[in-house]
Amino acid sequence: MLVKWIRCGVVDRAGFERGQRKWAGLRGQPGFRGLGGGWSRAQPGVAHLFAFWDSRAAYDAFMAGGHDQLAGSQADSYENLGVLLFEHLLDVRVGFEARFADADLLRVAHSKVRPGRGEHFVEMQKKVWNPAMAGSPGLLRGTFAEGADSDFLVLSLWISANERGKYRPAAMARLAERTELEGDVSSVAGDVVDLVQAWTV
């Protein structure tokens, strides 16, 4: 499964919202699994979107075909568009499905892994981080995916901000020490996103 992460600095919120609804045209595209996203809690005016495809081939076919027509109506509503692609490696908690209706909150973490440390980082994700996250009652599901240049993505869907808040910094610090996270990664960036159900496809 291919995961596409789109980050937009929105300059015309109303226009962006109108344009986002037009992505319903993705329904029926061969290989398309789902789209969801919302507004950053930490960065006003920043929208995050996540699209899921069966394969890179299906995604490339869409980009060469219907993409520009759907994207055109939104073009003037944002700036500083960033796009990253990742290949799914592991599920978090249960088999991942690109569904958003049962979630209120999305957490994204983007790690840059040091040269030669990718295998250890993946192993620690599998043996330590995933089971720890799966033990959080508010976690619905998630995906761990690998991009180019030693980039990794952890995307998790939560019932609510209150439930996600129980996954506390103290516990995360202990896990980071146990997994030698500082030795694995050169940087970690993330965001918490309030999902907008009207954007779900």
Score class of each variant (00 low, 15 high):
92 V>E: 00
131 P>Y: 03
8 C>D: 13
148 A>Q: 10
18 R>S: 10
166 K>Q: 06
48 H>F: 11
29 Q>R: 15
12 D>T: 00
32 F>D: 08
158 W>D: 00
160 S>C: 01
86 F>G: 08
50 F>G: 08
49 L>A: 09
100 F>D: 01
171 A>C: 00
90 L>P: 04
183 G>E: 08
113 V>Q: 07
96 F>C: 04
94 V>N: 07
186 S>I: 00
201 V>L: 14
195 L>V: 01
144 F>K: 04
163 E>A: 07
175 L>S: 04
98 A>D: 01
106 L>V: 11
171 A>G: 14
173 A>E: 10
190 G>R: 07
6 I>R: 09
143 T>Y: 03
167 Y>A: 06
27 R>G: 11
142 G>H: 07
190 G>Y: 12
159 I>R: 13
180 E>N: 12
78 Y>V: 02
185 V>N: 05
123 E>T: 05
103 A>T: 07
16 F>K: 05
33 R>Y: 00
126 K>T: 11
143 T>Q: 14
30 P>K: 03
146 E>S: 13
199 W>E: 06
167 Y>K: 00
106 L>E: 03
88 H>I: 01
148 A>N: 06
83 V>P: 13
173 A>T: 12
97 E>Q: 11
149 D>Q: 13
189 A>C: 06
178 R>S: 08
42 A>Q: 15
151 D>K: 13
99 R>L: 08
145 A>Q: 06
201 V>F: 15
78 Y>G: 03
71 A>K: 14
140 L>V: 03
187 S>W: 12
47 A>G: 07
4 K>F: 09
58 A>C: 05
201 V>T: 13
129 W>V: 11
93 R>N: 06
48 H>R: 04
113 V>R: 02
30 P>E: 01
199 W>S: 08
34 G>S: 09
137 P>K: 05
33 R>G: 04
62 F>M: 10
38 G>P: 08
22 K>L: 14
44 P>R: 04
153 L>A: 03
10 V>M: 13
145 A>R: 12
43 Q>D: 14
77 S>G: 10
35 L>V: 08
71 A>R: 15
153 L>N: 10
